[in-house]
């Protein structure tokens, strides 16, 4: 293993993010080659947390753009401050001649997250979260940013980043992304962690948890993931469940308590019926 990858492993671990070598190698390459990193995987495996951890590790700001259907350039890149322009125009009309070009300067520009990340003096970590939720047009909009780390504003010209930001795109694969977008990014598939790593993650997130309990939680969650649920529990759900179970620890584990706490990992009625059909005792050894 290269030293750099090991260093990334340690640095991420120190920030509370338990990564494996694949993650560390991807982060190292993204940082080294100045290329965006596209992270795909099931929900709740730590894609967004990776970006947060990177911001913490590198000491950079985190600029986050949450994607949604209908997101466009005016919400992601920049927008002109029309009320301000209008007011200026009225004021100038009263005084005399109007210079239209003076209305399209930085004074009237509202910076949105993407432009903001390019203009920051210290390059931030730019998180473009759940990019597949945005429209395909928005993907095309991102191409220039991801390929060249620049944005072209017709009135102002091309704005290039002094220092390329560390860009992390996440996707839950509810829609296939275009080849053009994939081509500009490095790729990381983040799957459910293996049980030992998941135990480490849970124990790091919930410090008071003893090893036996965390092992039981991880084993039960792993079993549930094999049951073909509509929403299989991710690592985030494991942590929530651990925190819930910790509250009942002193009272001793009963079937009722287990049922109450399972709300942390089972999120639909259909999944509940699957759990019930298997029986709670197959999940947990209840005395």
């Amino acid at each position: 293993m290269t030293e750099a990858v090991e260093q990334w492993l340690d640095r991420l671990k120190n920030c509370g993010y338990i990564a494996d070598t694949n993650v560390a190698a991807a982060v190292h390459l993204s940082n080294h080659l100045n290329r965006p990193l596209l992270v795909e995987g099931p929900a709740g495996v730590g894609k967004t947390s990776l970006a947060k951890a990177l911001a913490k590790v590198t000491g950079r700001d985190l600029v986050r753009l949450q994607c949604y259907q209908g997101l466009d350039a005016t919400h992601a890149l920049y927008d002109w401050d029309y009320p301000k322009q209008l007011l200026t125009l009225r004021a100038t009309n009263e005084s005399g001649a109007v210079n239209v070009d003076s209305l399209y300067t930085w004074n009237y520009l509202i910076e949105r997250p993407l432009l903001q990340s390019l203009r920051m003096s210290r390059a931030p970590v730019l998180l473009i979260d759940e990019v597949e939720r945005a429209d395909e047009d928005f993907e095309a909009l991102l191409l220039e940013l991801l390929g060249e780390f620049q944005i072209t504003i017709p009135e102002l010209g091309t704005i290039r980043a002094h220092e390329p930001p560390l860009v992390i795109l996440t996707s839950n694969r509810t829609r296939e992304l275009s080849d053009a977008l994939r081509r500009r990014c490095l790729y990381l598939w983040l799957d459910y962690p293996d049980p030992i790593r998941e135990m480490l993650i849970v124990e790091t997130a919930v410090p008071n948890l003893n090893q036996n309990l965390s092992a039981q939680i991880v084993a039960a969650v792993k079993k549930i993931r094999d049951w073909n649920l509509l929403k299989p529990p991710g690592v985030a759900e494991s942590i929530d469940w651990a925190q819930s179970l910790l509250l009942f620890k002193d009272a001793g584990m009963t079937e009722d308590m287990l049922r109450w706490s399972l709300g942390a990992i089972v999120k639909t009625q259909e999944d509940w019926s699957i759990i019930d059909s298997h029986g709670l005792r197959t999940l947990w050894l209840i005395s």
Binding site: M1, T21, N22, A26, S30
Partner: peptide, 16 residues
């Protein structure tokens, strides 16, 4: 070679 594979996979792979 494992490291090579891990590093190259990030570069070459584009889909799950």
């Amino acid at each position: 070679s494992v490291t090579t594979m891990i590093l190259w996979r990030v570069i070459y792979a584009k889909t799950p």
